[in-house]
Amino acid sequence: MSNVPSDLKYTKSHEWVRDNGDGTVTVGITDHAQELLGDLVHIELPEVGTEFGAEDGCAVAESVKAASDIYAPVPGVIVEANEAVQDSPELINSDPYGDGWMFVMRVDDEDAMDELLDADAYKAECDE
C-alpha cells in the first residue's frame, strides 16, 4: 500500500495539500499517483501570480507512460512553484511529499479546505 501521511489533506484527483498555517497551502501529487504514473519525465508548473478556481487544471505531470493534469485543490493564487521538479521530475517519484512538492497557493476561501479529504477518506478512495 502506498504512503498516505495523516497530517495532510487530499483530493479525489490525487493531489495532497499541506496547510502551512499562514493562509497558504503546499500542493503535490500523492505517492499513489506517482506509482500509477510511473517514472515522471516532464512537469509543467503554473506561473506565480496566476489565479485558479478549485478543480481548475493548473499543472501537468508527464511520465513515460501518460500525461496527467494536476488540479488546484482550493481556489487561490500561485505564490511559489518548485523549479527543482521541473529540472528533476524524478523527485516526485522518490519523495512525493517532500522535495517533490509542486506549488504553493495563497488560499482565497479558507472554507474550501473543509471540502478536502482526510487521510482515511483518501485511502478509502484509492481502495475503491
Partner: peptide, 9 residues
C-alpha cells in the same frame, strides 16, 4: 508486466 519498478531504469 508493464514494469518491475522503473521503466526508465
Amino acid at each position: 508486466p508493464i514494469h518491475y519498478g522503473s521503466q526508465l531504469q
